[in-house]
Design a protein around this nucleic acid. Structure first.
Lengths: 192, 192
DNA sequence: GACCTATCTTGTCGTCGTCAAGTAGGATCG
DNA sequence: CGATCCTACTTGACGACGACAAGATAGGTC
């Protein structure tokens, strides 16, 4: 078969875009650049992603999936820590391990994420995990959940993540392990 | 005089870029577009800003100045609230009132902010205000400051701001006043 | 009145996203 | 087995952008 029909171009583009995103940031993800890397013509990506934003939203959807997986993994491995502390650290670790992915995942508000079913499902799953663990467990009523500490915990962890990624916290700049230790202490304090 | 020499092009560009940023976001700020708006040739802005990133960093510097002003104003008007609660609400109000400016201000890490003296001074001032108020006051030693609640408070407020701006907090989406009330409650709780 | 330099213009290049029109080739059906 | 069709791709074009180079102009200086 000639390579006129790639066969799996959409996934190939997503994979290439994923590594490009993580290595060089969202700005480096261009449709034409991806086409070159994958070895197709410059307009081929447009066939699978109506526009560039839609590709980015798919990458953001993957980001939510990765984030939720990271929280679940942390929950499973939580040795001695409470569930809230565990998912908090899972969240933070994902952000620090995949800074560009994490940024895109939450910047996606400006990209019409409603156009991607996958994004809507993945972001809802993230929120659900967060809420059930950090707001009274899955058996709590919606009112009980809303009154729980989820907002406080989420905002604290999200703030810790974004401030570090944006190089804003002078005293801890570049000191990842020390920062993670400080974050762990804050989370434990919150949990009491 | 013909308008060959504009006279104050740099400031005119900054002003135009500022309103464009706040109204339409950083992506809408282009050197050529600004040139059109101000009525100069497409390459004129390049004379005052070596590249686009440098212009954005200047806008981010203004952002830090505005943020610090908002915190100081909140401190001055703090009726009954503690200093920490006051600056927290000042911070949050600035973010919610100027979402695009706030975003750019903290996304600037990827833009070599070190190239702008104004940015470095303004971001240092922001941090200093934050630290002195939220970490034992200006008379505390550096060690005492570091041990203070500044990281917790800053991360909480910054997280509350960015989550809201990124449309991430489902239950409060679009409900600014309710969200501000919830944030105030969280801040007061933190302060005890 | 000559020149000097900061400021602006014009022109160009390469890159990008997006659209339109054409083409290849596997699947389907006669 | 061959005509047809639709999906996946190609080629080509357009306008917008950032950036650079070279030229023009004004306003001050000697």
């Amino acid at each position: 078969m000639s390579d006129y029909h790639h066969g799996d171009l959409r996934n190939a583009l997503l994979a290439e875009a994923g590594s490009l995103l993580e290595e060089e940031g969202a700005e480096a993800v261009t449709l034409r650049g991806l086409a070159r890397r994958v070895g197709v013509s410059h307009a081929a990506p447009g066939y699978h992603f109506a526009d560039r934003d839609l590709l980015l939203v798919e990458l953001a959807a993957e980001g939510h999936e990765m984030l939720e997986a990271s929280m679940r993994r942390a929950l499973a491995e939580a040795d001695g820590e409470s569930d809230l502390v565990a998912i908090g650290m899972g969240y933070l670790r994902f952000a620090l391990d995949h800074p560009n992915r994490f940024r895109l995942t939450f910047e996606s508000a400006g990209l019409d994420p409603g156009r991607s079913e996958r994004f809507m499902a993945a972001s809802a799953a993230t929120f659900r995990t967060l809420l059930t663990v950090a707001a009274g467990g899955p058996d709590a009523t919606p009112d009980e959940q809303l009154a729980g500490p989820w907002l406080r915990a989420w905002a604290l962890v999200h703030g810790l993540a974004t401030l570090y990624l944006d190089d804003a916290v002078g005293p801890y700049r570049g000191q990842r392990e020390r920062y993670l230790a400080a974050a762990l202490a804050e989370l434990r304090a919150l949990d009491r």
